[in-house]
């Protein structure tokens, strides 16, 4: 009994989606890095200029943005270590799928710890 073709769009599993995630988070981090070097460079202009601009990072909306940025960094970091393991570890390719789930588990734990600390510091008090 022939089944209906499932379509031609390639939907790879863990391997492809981790690759997509790595690209997107990489680009996001890169553009933030450009901005971050520019805002830090204001220390060379004047203390007031720097303190004024850095003040923009200290509101509740930005606290969420920073948490999102750190989420991207932590995923990119852990998945990057997984890519290195896939490339250099003999059994890396065999266990790439399990390693992605380990990456995601570590990511959740790290982000829980970071979010609790960062959001309570930036949203609470002050």
């Amino acid at each position: 009994m022939p089944t209906k073709p499932a379509g031609t769009l390639y939907r790879g599993r863990e391997g492809m989606w981790s690759w997509v995630g790595h690209r997107i988070t990489g680009v996001v981090i890169f553009f933030f890095l450009l901005v971050h070097v520019l805002d830090t460079s204001l220390v060379r202009v004047s203390p007031e200029a720097y303190t004024a601009v850095i003040g923009a990072y200290k509101n509740p909306l930005m606290a969420l943005g920073e948490t999102g940025l750190v989420a991207a960094i932590v995923f990119h970091a852990f998945n990057g270590l997984r890519i290195i393991a896939v490339d250099f570890w003999k059994k890396g390719a065999k266990y790439q799928r399990q390693m992605l789930w380990a990456v995601l588990a570590l990511w959740v734990v790290t982000m829980l710890a970071f979010s609790i600390r960062h959001l309570s510091l930036s949203l609470g008090g002050h």
């Binding site: 830090t40 220390v43 203390p47 007031e48 720097y50 303190t51 850095i54 990072y57 200290k58 606290a63 920073e66 750190v70 970071f114 600390r117 960062h118 510091l121 930036s122 002050h126």
Partner: peptide
Amino acid sequence: LMVGEGIHAIDFGFV
């Protein structure tokens, strides 16, 4: 971000 007052401590003097 994680130590002391976190992001609130960042100003010219911090850098």
